[in-house]
Design a protein around this nucleic acid. Structure first.
Lengths: 347, 347
DNA sequence: TCGTGTGACTAGAGCGCTCTAGTCGCTCCG
DNA sequence: CGGAGCGACTAGAGCGCTCTAGTCACACGA
């Protein structure tokens, strides 16, 4: 008995109800998993739905229900750390009974457009990933809907981020503990959190009594900045024994350029990144870095959104998670051949 | 005259209509940009909407309109090539008047779930990125909705992909042109398109009269496979002078491992990737690779979806784009010190 | 015998839009 | 002067659901 496919029309509840010989309301009931239908009827409805290839229309469902129970996520394709976040958002949202809609910010599509799309789809809350969202934009958005920012502090909004100064301090402690004295920081420029990381570095150096040796190189949150910084270091009078990069991508550029120029890492120079994104963990990179736990950040963000949704009068809060240093293969005590090699490399 | 914000309720057309002193229908008309409203009324409506912070609810709009004009995109966060595709899909979709909804396949969220979400949101067509979608899944999906697969051929569905054998041939031609005789292929294992690339390689080698020297190493589409292949080569009796990797990620692992073991690339061994994703283009990678034009693939995919939507009776078609070799810094003529170095490296 | 539960089911009013089929005043023409 | 034509606007049905307020049959205790 082949299913008589209606022309092209997508089957609705009415079709299922007719086929199962029950009312529309009963079908709705079954699909919402509510009590009130006998086991026998329930399975008959389900079978009818299956035969027709019926699936509930979430537009209609959204409309009829007051709430959409949908979370919008603003992301950047291509940022490995955000990918980690997205992966972690899905399960937590599901656990709390929310659907997730993704919208990407790209070079040709700004945040406003991306968010507009999410809002039009009735997202109850927006989770903004990545710190490169404008401040003015944020406050305006916060006034209009529930918004949670992941990766940086946001005044007047819910935000989840890690304690950057603390993370940097751990990295400096680790390097100093290994015996390093000349630790250079390649910073994140004007990027968000860059100031916090920079300050954290300076303070940590001072705390160890190396305030005078602290040295900050201008950088940014991408590979090219790392490459440029490495070239600057190679051209300088003497290589430091350790470099603390603004983030993992910057560290990667740095690492690669140093090695290509015959500098042994970690033998001659130790390198530390920040974020612990997937790239850092790859076996051929094996970067010592400061981990921001993407899973934890994501869970907190989703919960914050849900909490605000449950109680709109809740004060927006800032959640600061403690980052954790992950020691891998790019750090070691300053090498014995250090001085000699430095001389070799320096002009 | 402050806007008297209603408790929390999102404003609707009725609110706007009341404020502007017109009917609901007129507001709808204005928002759809249809003729039939005087310029004066139009701006009055727009002003009222602005004051109330009204934005049309796309769930309701979707429901009322027959069509959703929404394209669903199934993607994998974290695959650089897919990021390129997504970035290119947005503008083309907008050009054709479609919205885009993203849904990610993650380790904990399979394709079926991701697609289900898109379908529930009334996407008219689904664009599936990345070739790791199951075949059975595809045919079932194709029967249910308009689906376009990007990155591989798909029987009975619209698909857009590049001519893999041709791309590989270009790579082999390039290497042979440089003087290489011993070109090894690290393949993509059972991965999609891997067979096509493998065959392309074997045929190209044969065409140059080197069929007997052709050598395929088992691999996969990720960095670890490249690392393993490099280790196998290093452990072997003699290094080839060139390696053609299954894709860029594989090439990256290969590249890194070779260099770490003191093998000069491209001096001693040339390496070629496949895809030309962003990573390959980074200045510190600078990989010679076969480009699949993400922008072109994306545009074709979106257009194919739109075309099928306009005319459901259209035969599904396979679009094959010609890939193009991009010569960068990882290929060079086989080095003079080749033989000697090979002996050095071999045990 | 009647209430009074209770479990299984249904009727019908929305949700916020779109869209068809109007109505209402005008101007213009024969 | 009557109506055709037109621009500006409105009424109201309907999209596919959810949800409240039922109805109906049946068992059970007093």
């Amino acid at each position: 008995m082949a299913t008589p496919l209606p022309p092209r029309r997508r089957p609705t509840m009415v079709d299922v109800a007719a086929r199962a010989g029950v009312s529309r309301a009963l079908v709705s009931l079954v699909f919402r998993g509510q009590p009130g239908a006998s086991a026998e009827t329930r399975s008959r409805v389900l079978a009818a739905a299956e035969e027709l290839g019926y699936r509930p229309d979430s537009a209609a469902r959204l409309l009829a229900r007051g709430r959409s129970r949908t979370l919008g996520v603003l992301m950047t394709v291509r940022e490995p750390f955000e990918a980690d976040l997205v992966e972690a958002i899905y399960p937590e949202a599901e656990r709390l009974g929310y659907e997730v809609l993704l919208s990407a910010r790209t070079p040709g599509r700004d945040e406003a457009t991306a968010v507009e799309g999410l809002l039009a789809h009735r997202c109850e809350a927006i989770v903004l990933l990545g710190p490169d969202v404008g401040d003015a934009f944020l406050t305006e958005l916060g006034a209009r809907t529930v918004a949670v920012v992941v990766g940086r502090a946001a005044p007047g909004l819910d935000s989840v981020h890690s304690a950057d100064a603390e993370g940097v301090r751990q990295a400096v402690d680790h390097l100093v503990g290994l015996g390093h004295r000349d630790v250079v920081h390649v910073d994140g420029g004007t990027g968000p959190n860059a100031a916090a990381r920079r300050t954290g570095y300076l303070e940590a150096m001072a705390a160890h009594g190396f305030g005078g040796r602290a040295r900050v190189l201008p950088g940014a949150y991408h590979e090219d900045a790392g490459i440029a910084a490495a070239q600057a270091l190679l051209a300088g009078p003497e290589l430091p024994t350790a470099v603390l990069a603004a983030n993992d991508r910057c560290a990667l550029g740095l690492l690669d350029t140093l090695r290509r120029n015959g500098v042994d890492v970690p033998g001659r120079v130790s390198v530390v990144g920040y974020n612990d994104d997937r790239l850092a963990r790859l076996s051929h990179v094996d970067l010592t870095t400061v981990r921001q736990d993407a899973g934890l950040l994501a869970r907190h963000a989703v919960r914050a959104a849900a909490a605000r949704l449950d109680d709109p009068d809740l004060e927006p809060g800032e959640t600061e998670l403690t980052p954790e240093l992950v020691v891998r293969g790019t750090t070691a005590p300053p090498g014995v051949p250090g001085g000699a090699l430095a001389a070799d490399v320096a002009p």
